[in-house]
């Protein structure tokens, strides 16, 4: 039906195909932003609930009646209504641009996430490469935020974030290479279709490395040194308030969703599963991974900077290479598999 509507739109405008194309893009982006906002609000509420219950308390219980389900909405409205403070000596244009860059990079990654067969905005043939490239942009936004705030904590947080992202991106990409070798394609849809068994069974080591790096990439505990509250106040977003802060916050959760969606696609067999519709399977798997991420956050303590670098360069990277080497060897010996 959607296809029919599009067809008639294109027919209507004839050689002015750019107009319906723009409308189409606008609608798709709106849907993605809507999805991100709802998912982020749910995740924030969920995380507060999980953290509370792990600490044997209830968390938000009041807003909206049932277990405080409307808490995130109330928080969002509160942040919207708050005064928007820009520090006097901040670098204004960059300060304003930074949250947008962070959010845009998160948003762009959603283009190639396969929610179900055919339910993908654009099945790029370089899907996974595109995601890796785009998600690296978030670091740029964080550095912009930290640098333009003109605040030593923010600058420190931003620099730490840069160091962390550079270190963890390498094992992350190499761990993804294992499954990609087996599939022989970078397209997200092809990766899912190639999984007769979820790749986590074939590549457990790669999954663990990927997941560790993903946690680090999204700046979450135990790897949250860029925003370590106890030493850097809040890291790169110290100076942000109101809606700009909310955008950072939302981008963090949107990024979490992206990395978990990639893990689902590459390692857990994407939308495949019995009985339930494909989209449901995809969301169940992704949200389970998100749950594991939150669970980890409330289990482990923050690592030191040197420990962080140790783990990346001395543990994850060699292991990722070993995994890649073994995968390549097995592929060479048994070319069919």
């Amino acid at each position: 039906m959607i296809g029919g509507v599009l067809e008639s739109l294109y027919g209507l405008f004839g050689e002015w195909w750019i107009i319906p194309r723009l409308i189409e893009m606008f609608v798709v982006v709106s849907i993605i932003i809507g999805f991100i906002s709802v998912a982020a609000m749910f995740l924030i509420w969920w995380e507060r609930k999980i953290s509370a219950h792990i600490q044997v308390r209830f968390g938000p219980m009041r807003v909206g009646g049932w277990h405080g389900w409307a808490q995130s909405i109330a928080d969002g409205i509160k942040l919207l209504l708050k005064e928007d403070i820009i520090p006097a000596r901040a670098d204004r244009p960059i300060f304003i641009l930074a949250p947008m860059v962070v959010f845009a990079s998160a948003l762009a990654a959603y283009v190639v996430i396969p929610f179900g067969p055919g339910l993908i905005v654009q099945d790029l043939n370089i899907g996974i490469l595109y995601i890796i490239a785009i998600s690296s942009l978030a670091v740029l936004g964080i550095i912009m935020a930290g640098w333009s705030s003109n605040n030593k904590y923010a600058a420190l947080g931003a620099l730490r974030s840069a160091a962390q992202a550079v270190s963890y991106e390498i094992p992350l990409i190499i761990s993804l290479l294992g499954p990609l070798l087996i599939v022989g394609s970078l397209s997200m849809t092809k990766i899912v279709e190639a999984q007769y068994v979820p790749f986590i069974l074939v590549q457990p080591l790669a999954f663990l490395i990927y997941f560790t790096c993903a946690v680090a990439e999204t700046n979450r505990l135990p790897f949250d040194i860029p925003e370590a509250e106890s030493e850097l106040v809040a890291g790169f977003h110290v100076e942000y308030s109101g809606m700009r802060f909310a955008i950072f916050f939302m981008a963090e959760y949107a990024n979490m969703f992206v990395v978990c969606a990639i893990a689902t696609t590459v390692f857990l067999g994407g939308w495949k599963g019995p009985l339930l519709p494909p989209v449901a399977w995809f969301l169940i798997k992704t949200f389970f991974l998100l749950f594991v991420m939150m669970w980890l956050r409330w289990t482990l303590t923050r690592t030191r900077v040197d420990q962080l670098m140790n783990v990346a360069w001395k543990v994850l990277l060699p292991l990722a290479f070993v995994n890649l080497g073994i995968t390549g060897l097995v592929m060479l010996l048994y070319p069919v598999g």
Binding site: A52, I54, V56, R57, F58, M61, W295, L296, T299
Partner: peptide
């Protein structure tokens, strides 16, 4: 440690509403 936190996740909260 994850096992421990999981156990706590499912214990009853001590909060009195």
């Amino acid at each position: 440690s994850m096992q421990i936190t999981l156990r706590y996740l499912f214990t009853r909260a001590v909060t009195v509403q």
